[in-house]
Design a protein around this nucleic acid. Structure first.
Lengths: 131, 131
DNA sequence: CTGGATGCAAACGCTTTGCAAATAG
DNA sequence: CTATTTGCAAAGCGTTTGCATCCAG
């Protein structure tokens, strides 16, 4: 078991903790460069992988294939429009009890969950109706 | 509003309906070629987009960035291991009531939802402990 | 001195786009 | 005949990998 955390991992973890929203790997990269660190994109991805496996960073994969990373443990779920891609954050979340059950039933160590709703936002419903 | 559905859309929709598991765009493409249709990969993606917007096809994006498409309406949620990528399907789902509430609260037309759990499977928990 | 961590650039894989040919109505 | 759909090839974009260098212990 590797107890130790590298310098890049520390920097990235701190950056994420200071954030109140999820960041893409690319924006983490650009942010760190802006701060003067000569980090590489590959390192960002490698560090995120490690933090992910530690369970301290969670990932949300967008429909575009891009992944957003965050270190805060809040429930942030979304209503995402299939047409325009807009995401409305919601806070309701009825799955914590289930998480406990699943842990017992499958011996699976659950770090976090993702709950996303897909459909059409009000505007796009109207836009499509007018076609 | 486009009522009509193209030939490719029909073929793909039928293929998906006949399936009891979600398929990637690439495997849909290969399956249709195998059946003798001279379809292009671009057409597959375009048709999937249209079906998605109709609300008759749902998408699940893997951590790899690949998307899986399905036409069945079952609740198929998963426990996914962050290390080995293995997915255990589960059937519990406590979010349908919430869906109704959200529809009313946000005027958002919900087609489907995705509920995914991430962590470590039993094997990977052990493998990591032995490092 | 040695193994891991790092940066860069090239490779990779899925997806999207440009465009001309085929097709539908 | 006009608009839409299609297939192909090329481009796009986020991510991963190969490799030489750097750094920590």
């Amino acid at each position: 078991m590797k107890a130790h955390r590298t310098r890049s991992q520390d920097r990235i973890f701190n950056l994420l903790k200071a954030q109140n929203q999820a960041l893409s790997a690319q924006s983490i990269y650009m942010e760190l460069r802006k701060e003067g660190h000569s980090i590489g994109l590959a390192t960002v991805y490698r560090a995120l992988d490690a933090l992910k496996l530690e369970g301290v960073v969670q990932v949300r994969t967008l429909a575009t294939g891009e992944s957003l990373y965050s270190a805060n443990q809040e429930d942030r779920h979304h209503l995402t429009c299939l047409q325009c891609g807009d995401s409305i954050p919601i806070h309701e979340c009825p799955v914590h009890d289930l998480e406990e059950q699943l842990h017992k039933a499958y011996q699976f160590k659950i770090y976090y969950h993702m709950l996303e709703f897909f459909g059409l936002c009000t505007q796009c419903q109207q836009a499509i109706a007018q076609d």
